[in-house]
Design a binder for these strands. Structure first.
Lengths: 283, 283
DNA sequence: GATGTGTGTATCTCTCAGCGATACATCTAT
DNA sequence: ATAGATGTATCGCTGAGAGATACACACATC
């Protein structure tokens, strides 16, 4: 389907050889290794054997053995019920639940998303900004949803998605350029954005319009619009976006019909700084 | 809303004092501590401060400092954008995605769930068996869904839910008794099952009927039916369940209308042992 | 039946990661 | 001021755990 690529980008870690932490006395090797093992499945297509975990995580077989053994006992990994092989364990879902539950922004977003879905009868998503990529956190599926339902945690590039462009529109130009430069620009469709210039055109349009409008970027018959979610300092931390089919909509029609609603929703979810009492403002 | 309780039950770990692993040379203290910190948010209601993490995880402040610092750099934790405080980080969602993506049973379940939702116009869920509790993994929301959308990872008791009873119906009586004994039996509504005997009545009925039917267990106006998903050895690993409103349905009507569909769906998702070649069968 | 390459599992010794104590610089709140 | 949070930094001693090595058990293939 979508071309496989490592979207973790710069935030990806070379498990331990990262060298970056060599001089950080606070940084614990063992934690990095543990996380490396848990993240080993990122690039997997099937349940992994012990030595596959070892190579994927960049640790030697002995270390993998001990870490996997421990993570198994803690429920962070499981064995595939049928075939042998290791998989992320149920305790991962607990952490997911905690993340969705505790993040104040997502808490606020929930009712807003439900209301938005009620009005817009299309697929509504909320995703979180993570440098070169954007990660789906909430989805309100529409009536006609034919494909996968499991998208929590799905990551797509920032530079060519409605949510991503909406986020970029709040960043200074040089930061946008920086992100695009570090992105994998392999196109998904023949219409996928390929250059920084094209990104900038969309970013500028989004700044004026208030929401982004993108067509045929990840899928050939898809139109999507998005608006950014800000934190209390005004920085973008995510986006709300709506996707529809070009067999039913024109880009303009879609944008005109739902743009204001999406902008309004994103605005509502964004931080409202508690009146006047904020860091340096009271002076 | 739902009474707060620790559903992790027996699988919960006393982070390090567990004593259970004292003699296991393969078990790594550092991994346990790392996981303990990541799981510290389980019992939290808000973003946690460093020392809150420390106490919740059962490690001293120094250890918490180092582990949190490391997990932050790795993206497994984040700081709350507005308020200060720590939260599960975005990388958790990556792991979620991996879990949902890689589990062969969930892969098979996806199209089945979509088809089931198409026929049953009610809320359809798939949850995974985890001892005294059952964890939501997939949800296909229905038209009238008014409450929370973020339920991936939500855990409910095994002994009083449609999915849970369906799972128990495949276990021997003494195992059922064992699970009920270890469960927190605090009722959710005035109709919630309170005794092992009541559980057993439902289990037996489910064994004959092929699916479970439960009313007013977690919510006062809810009816739910469920059917178990088996692994290749026949052991239950999860359940598919459908929930509806008692303002629209009678329990019998609901059961008769959707029971066969749910059973069929669960059957389809269950392991099909590759014809004859299995562990001890070929002899 | 050998042989090879995969799996998971177990044991042992030496050393450096990281434990835990201690100190400090902020804040906010009395 | 005083008191109690918060996050942050330094440091010397020691036992957790690295990493090598070995074994049991699957499957293949010749």
């Amino acid at each position: 389907m979508t071309t496989f690529r490592d979207l973790r980008g710069i935030s990806s870690f070379d498990p331990d050889e990262g060298e970056a932490y060599k001089d950080d006395p606070l940084f614990m090797r063992s934690v990095a290794r543990t996380v490396a093992v848990m993240s080993a499945f990122q690039s997997a297509r099937h349940p992994l054997s012990l030595s596959q975990v070892a190579t994927a995580a960049g640790v030697d077989r002995s270390a993998a053995q001990r870490i996997v053994h421990s993570l198994l006992k803690l429920g962070m990994l499981t064995r595939d019920p049928e075939d042998r092989g290791y998989l992320p364990g149920l305790r991962v879902l607990d952490m997911t639940h905690d993340l969705l539950r505790l993040n104040p922004m997502l808490q606020r977003a929930n009712p807003v998303m439900l209301e938005l879905r009620r009005r817009v009868r299309e697929r509504v998503d909320l995703s979180l900004f993570d440098d070169v990529r954007v990660v789906y956190a909430l989805r309100m599926p529409s009536k006609h949803e034919i494909f996968s339902a499991t998208i929590v945690g799905h990551a797509v590039p920032t530079y060519c998605t409605a949510g991503g462009i909406a986020i970029l529109s709040l960043l200074p130009d040089e930061k946008v350029a920086d992100i695009v430069k570090r992105s994998d620009l392999t196109p998904f469709t023949s219409h996928t954005i390929r250059t920084l210039d094209e990104v900038m055109v969309h970013v500028h349009a989004t700044r004026e319009r208030g929401h982004s409008v993108l067509c045929r970027q990840l899928l050939n018959h898809e139109v999507a619009i998005g608006a950014p979610i800000r934190d209390s300092s005004g920085a973008p931390i995510g986006a709300i976006h709506v996707a529809g089919s070009l067999q039913e909509w024109t880009a303009e029609g879609f944008s005109d019909s739902f743009g204001p609603l999406v902008q309004n929703a994103a605005q509502t979810v964004s931080e409202k700084a508690p009146i006047g009492i904020r860091k340096g403002i009271q002076e």
